[in-house]
Amino acid sequence: MRITREPIYADEPRGVLDAVRRHVVSYLARVGRCVRLAAEALAYAPYVLAHRDSRRTMIAQLYVTGIRTLPVITVVGVFTGMIMGLQVGLALRRFSQEAYLGATVMLTLVREMGPFVTGICLSACVGSAMAAELGTMTVNDEVAALEIMHIPPVRYLVAPRLAALVAMSPLLAFYACVLGVMGGGLVGYTQLNVDFSQYMASAMSMATVKDVYVGLFKATVFGLVIGAVSCHEGFKSTLGAVGVGRATQRSVIVSFLLILTLGYVITRLFYLDFLP
């Protein structure tokens, strides 16, 4: 996949309909390029694992993605659980059903909120930095230099980053879920008079292995999406610092939107039998 492209100049749209059509086509083309970028980067995964320098880059990216985001994920995970515990607990109290607090918090976190908040954190902390880094490299001709040296930028730059995000995203989502459940239990115990062991028993009784698998799968897909979108937007940067800023902003917006929509689609696919 060629990264360095010629600028595209288009005439002014002929009316509103033409402008809308062009936006739709442009959006679909962007999604298509992201999918192609992700597919090509995944095809390079064996190379990344076998080649010493790429492995080194991937380990560095694992550190950036996994370790440096831990403080943020910790805070977000705990407080997501605490907020859910409080809101759900107050609602359940009206019906004297506080005993189900653990189950509700656990299911919501494992199925939806754990992967979701992890995706949002990774997009904001890691994806934006990736887009800015690759964007700066693009406007400084470093990506063009790689192509002239016959070093595929997708293999050298994208594959290790994508591999790190795909590997770390489910682990961080699991970590966020564990902390969230603990946070919910803390709120239940201190403010709603729910016994912690009862809370944990309720939590463990409702979550199934399928819930965990679907949650981890969702987080893996989010990691892939964040990596592909961020790298793609970075490579599309033009116009110097302004362009890099726009690319960073676009990478976060597109990742957020895709995390939300794909989150729904995956839930619908895996829990279809529970729906009317």
Partner: peptide, 28 residues
């Protein structure tokens, strides 16, 4: 074999000068 010297050098910031020069040999 065509080499290209960009206006700003286009070196990769996270590699040393030696590693930058070795890059095309290591990768290709």
């Amino acid at each position: 074999h065509v080499g290209y010297l960009f206006q700003g050098g286009a070196l990769l910031a996270w590699l040393t000068v030696w590693e930058n020069v070795a890059l095309p040999l290591r990768e290709t």
